[in-house]
Measured scan of single mutants.
Amino acid sequence: MAAGGDHGSPDSYRSPLASRYASPEMCFVFSDRYKFRTWRQLWLWLAEAEQTLGLPITDEQIQEMKSNLENIDFKMAAEEEKRLRHDVMAHVHTFGHCCPKAAGIIHLGATSCYVGDNTDLIILRNALDLLLPKLARVISRLADFAKERASLPTLGFTHFQPAQLTTVGKRCCLWIQDLCMDLQNLKRVRDDLRFRGVKGTTGTQASFLQLFEGDDHKVEQLDKMVTEKAGFKRAFIITGQTYTRKVDIEVLSVLASLGASVHKICTDIRLLANLKEMEEPFEKQQIGSSAMPYKRNPMRSERCCSLARHLMTLVMDPLQTASVQWFERTLDDSANRRICLAEAFLTADTILNTLQNISEGLVVYPKVIERRIRQELPFMATENIIMAMVKAGGSRQDCHEKIRVLSQQAASVVKQEGGDNDLIERIQVDAYFSPIHSQLDHLLDPSSFTGRASQQVQRFLEEEVYPLLKPYESVMKVKAELCL
C-alpha cells in the first residue's frame, strides 16, 4: 500500500493539533497551500530580480507567473513527485505547466533550498508574528487579574506546605514575570531571523556568478533584492546548502521555554482548584465526569500541561538535527523538520489560546482563602504575639514557653481530632496574655502579614508589564474561544 493518505478522510490519521486544537490561522501558515504558494512567490521574486539585473526574462513571463501564483494543481504535483521522487522539481514542473512561456526560467540558477529553506524562514517569521500578540493578550488578562487582587491576602506555599502570606495578585505576578520573559525572547528570536537568500547549491553562489558572467556586484544585488522582497532586513552571508540548523534550535528553545512557563502556571491553577481557592472557567453544560456528576475538573489547565510537556520535548529534535548536518548538509534534517517545526508552533498556539481562555474567566473564592488563612495564621502570628507581650512588660522566655504549650495543644486538636485551630481562643482565655487581649485582632490582621506584596504588584505592572504590552494595544480586544 502506498504511503500517505487522504487526510480529510475519517479513515486516515490526522494530527489532533490540526484537527482538534490549533487555530485556523496557525494551521494555514503550515498548510501545503501556504507552503507551495510561497515557493511560487519566491520563484517570481527571483525572476523579477534577475530581470532587473539584466537576464533575458520578459515582462510577459513575469506576468504569467504572477497570474498563476494561486493556480496550484495539487493532484498534478503529487503525481509528479511520485514520478520524480523530488518535491521541488515536482512543483517546478507543475508551475511550468500553467506558465508555459515562463517554464524555462522558473528556478533559474537556484537549488531546492532556495524555495525550501527560504519558505521555512518566512513561515517561522509569520508563525512567530501570530504567537506574539496571543502571548501579549494572556499577559494582559493576567495583569488585569493581578491588579484587581493585588491586596487580597492568601496563604503562600513553599514545598506545598503553608508559608508566609502573600497576595493573590502577587502570586499571579510570578506567572506574568515568566511570560514577559517569554514574550521578550519570542520577539528577540523573531527579529534575529535572517533570510537564507540566493546562495546556490553549497552556499557559494557559483551558479549565479556564472549567470551574471562573473559580476560579483550583481550577485550581491540579486541576494539583497530577493531578501528585501521577502520582507527581511538581512540575509546570511555564510550558508551551506541550507541555512544553519542552529536557527531551528533557537526558535524551538524559546517555544519550549514558553511551554515550561505555561505548565507551571496551569499546575498552580490545578492545585488551587483542589484547594477550592480558584477555578478555571466551567461552562453551564460542561460535564466533569461521566460517573461523578459533582466533579469540576480543571480540564483546560490539564490540557495545557499535557501539550506543554510535548512542546518542551520537541527542542531535542533540532538539537540532534543540527549535530548531524555533515559538511554542507545531509538530508537527516528533512523529514524531522517537516514534523517538529509545525508541531512546535501548533502546540504553542494551542496552549496560548487555551491559557487566554482560562485567564479571561478565572474565578476566585475569597471566603475559602480566608478560612485557610484562619487555619494557619495563628501559628504564624506567634512571633508577633511574643513581641507584643514583651512590649507590655512580659518575659520573652516565659511567653515563648506559654505559646509553645498552647500551640501544641491547638495542633493536637487540628491533627488528632480534625478540629479547627483554636490557638487564639486559648490565648484569649489565658490570664497571662490579658495585657494584649485587646491587640489580638490587630495582630491577626492578614494584611499585616503580606509585606509589600501589593506595592510590588503595582510597581511591576507599571514599570515592566504595561510598557512591554504597549506595541500590542491594537490587538488586545480579541477574545479566545474554545470549541473543545
Rank of each mutant, 00 (worst) to 15 (best):
W45H: 13
G4V: 15
L423H: 06
N68M: 11
K101S: 09
K101F: 08
M312F: 05
Q439L: 10
E228C: 11
R404Q: 09
R426C: 04
L55H: 09
I72W: 14
V198Q: 03
A256Q: 04
L130C: 12
K199V: 04
A335E: 01
V219Y: 02
R85V: 14
G361S: 15
I385D: 04
D59F: 11
G200M: 01
L186M: 11
K218D: 06
L362F: 13
L355A: 09
T313M: 11
F208T: 05
N274L: 06
Q177D: 05
F460E: 05
L314T: 08
L444Q: 05
V414N: 04
L165A: 00
I424E: 13
F28L: 09
N336P: 02
T354W: 04
G288D: 01
W175L: 04
R194A: 07
K367I: 05
D441H: 12
N353L: 13
Q221P: 01
M278D: 03
L423V: 04
S12A: 13
L55T: 05
T111N: 04
S323A: 11
S151Q: 12
L142S: 06
R141S: 15
F449L: 04
W39M: 13
S31E: 08
K470V: 11
Y34S: 13
G156K: 00
W43G: 00
K170M: 07
P467S: 11
M65V: 09
Y365D: 02
S67V: 14
E417A: 09
A235D: 09
V475W: 10
D223Q: 11
H263W: 04
Q41I: 10
L469M: 11
T166H: 07
F212R: 04
F379Y: 03
V405D: 13
Y472S: 10
L331N: 06
R270T: 01
V226F: 00
K246D: 00
T38I: 14
Q455G: 10
T227R: 07
L252N: 13
K170G: 03
M299Y: 09
R459V: 10
K276S: 05
D215S: 15
V219N: 06
I269V: 12
K246T: 04
E464M: 06
C180K: 06
A322L: 15
E425D: 13
H97Y: 14
R270S: 04
A411M: 07
G156W: 00
L362Q: 06
L346Y: 11
P318C: 09
T158F: 01
Q416H: 11
L362G: 06
S140V: 15
K187E: 09
T202P: 00
L258A: 12
V251I: 09
A78C: 12
K233L: 11
D445G: 08
M76D: 13
R40P: 03
E220N: 14
L272N: 05
L346M: 15
G109N: 04
N297H: 01
F195Q: 02
F282N: 13
R270H: 01
M316E: 05
E279L: 05
D117R: 00
L331I: 12
K367P: 07
Y243G: 13
H159T: 02
L362H: 06
D73K: 08
F282D: 09
A90C: 12
C266A: 10
N68T: 09
G451S: 03
Q397Y: 03
N68D: 11
D445Y: 09
K229P: 03
R396Q: 01
Y294Q: 04
D191P: 01
Q63V: 10
D268I: 00
E213I: 14
E148P: 06
K35H: 13
F236C: 06
E360F: 05
K233T: 10
E148M: 09
E425H: 14
D191Q: 08
S289C: 00
R83M: 11
W43K: 00
R20W: 00
N297F: 00
S434T: 14
E81W: 00
R85Q: 00
E464P: 05
L482Q: 15
F232R: 01
I57C: 06
L319F: 06
H86T: 01
L275I: 12
D73E: 09
I424Q: 15
P446R: 04
L275V: 10
A230R: 01
M292G: 01
N353P: 08
L461C: 11
D182Y: 04
C266I: 02
R20A: 00
N71C: 11
D430T: 12
S454T: 14
V414Q: 04
M292Q: 03
F345T: 12
S448N: 15
V247S: 11
G419W: 08
Q356K: 03
L44F: 06
D73A: 09
M89A: 08
L362V: 09
A102W: 00
I237Q: 09
L307M: 15
P471C: 15
P153S: 06
A49E: 04
Q210A: 08
I287R: 02
K391T: 14
A2E: 09
G200C: 02
Y472F: 14
D192H: 10
I237L: 12
L165R: 03
P298V: 04
L84D: 14
R338P: 01
L44E: 06
S301W: 01
G169M: 03
A2C: 15
I238P: 05
P100F: 07
S395C: 12
N274G: 04
Q455L: 12
W43E: 07
M312D: 02
S207T: 15
G418F: 03
V465T: 08
E360G: 10
Q416N: 12
G288P: 00
A342Q: 10
L307I: 09
L179M: 13
A150Y: 15
M292E: 04
L142D: 09
I351K: 03
M387H: 06
H442Y: 12
K284V: 12
T242A: 09
M181E: 09
S454M: 10
C483R: 15
G394S: 12
Y34I: 02
F74Q: 12
E80W: 07
Q285A: 09
L469P: 02
V254W: 07
V429S: 12
D59P: 10
R300E: 05
D191L: 08
L355W: 08
L17R: 01
V414H: 03
L69P: 07
N71M: 11
A150T: 07
E279C: 09
L131R: 00
L222R: 00
I351M: 15
T201D: 02
